[in-house]
Design a protein around this nucleic acid. Structure first.
Lengths: 153, 153
DNA sequence: GTTCTTGCAAAAGCTTTGCAGGAAG
DNA sequence: CTTCCTGCAAAGCTTTTGCAAGAAC
């Protein structure tokens, strides 16, 4: 199930994002190659929750011949630079998005639907975890599983 | 890293648990085989967070010749019966424990430490998710990732 | 005897890695 | 020209599945 909304953003914000990311990549000693540019463009152009597989397919579509391993390596690099984040969804594959658009996620174990939730919802849990266990939670890093209204058994 | 505390329980509770689970297995039309008994005994005998790999190793130790696939199949069966639960830890392998000892988990992405947390800590998030998204969270099903006091960068 | 369970081996799903050729700067 | 990136193929890790032999009841 590939992305929706790809390329539906305003040129203004997207262009800025993209340039800034290119800059970051270059400054970290990286090269700006075709697969890199394409992958960055995909991220900037959508708010969807894309798995590595989705991204591999889309990059391959826009830049034929790109290997899966290349996409995985780019994902690692972009994540190290803090450009993107990956989210464990419980159901096998992780999904990825721009970290500047970061937020927490609810994932339905019935239908796989992903619901974005603002970090505010995790504030109490966050404070309690720090106070009681000296543990700093990363609410974006793993989705909270459960059942959506349609799938409640 | 296999289990600690295995077999450290009182005979009273453990015995009761074990018999009850055997009963449940039989009543669901299942047979009581050696690997089954061993796996149940392991769960009843520890509060540790055991991965499938841990369990495969321990079952194999106590009942040599048992195949990994057998353990996986037993885990599925026990989970269907509601005897155990599995928890996605973000770091590849899931871990398992008796559902009657259920609780939520914090997992440190630095050192892998697992911290048990009472369900009460999720009450607010639970209510908010239901109210705002008609989504019923399963706080046991996926661990909350983050950094423990030792590993905060 | 019938049905469920097992061991073995193969495979599936997701991701990482080794390597040598090729491109970016 | 040096360093980084790429494609390809192989392998890693966790888990699932097909199958025929064997055990439980």
């Amino acid at each position: 199930m590939p992305s929706r909304r790809a390329g539906a953003n305003t040129a203004l914000t997207s262009g800025a994002d993209e340039k800034a990311i290119h800059e970051r990549l270059r400054r970290s000693g990286g090269r700006l190659t075709d697969p890199t540019r394409v992958l960055v463009a995909i991220f900037v152009g959508t708010d969807a929750h894309l798995t590595a597989d989705d991204l591999i397919a889309e990059v391959h579509r826009r830049s034929p011949g790109t290997a899966p391993s290349t996409v995985y390596r780019l994902l690692q690099r972009l994540e190290q630079l803090g450009v993107i984040e990956h989210v464990h969804s419980g159901s096998g594959a992780a999904f990825y998005h721009l970290s500047e658009r970061g937020h927490a996620h609810l994932v339905c174990t019935g239908c796989g639907r992903v619901i974005d939730v603002p970090d505010a919802a995790f504030e109490q849990l966050s404070k309690a975890s720090r106070a009681a266990y000296d543990f700093t939670i990363e609410p974006h890093h793993s989705a909270v599983l459960g059942r959506c209204g349609v799938c409640v058994s």
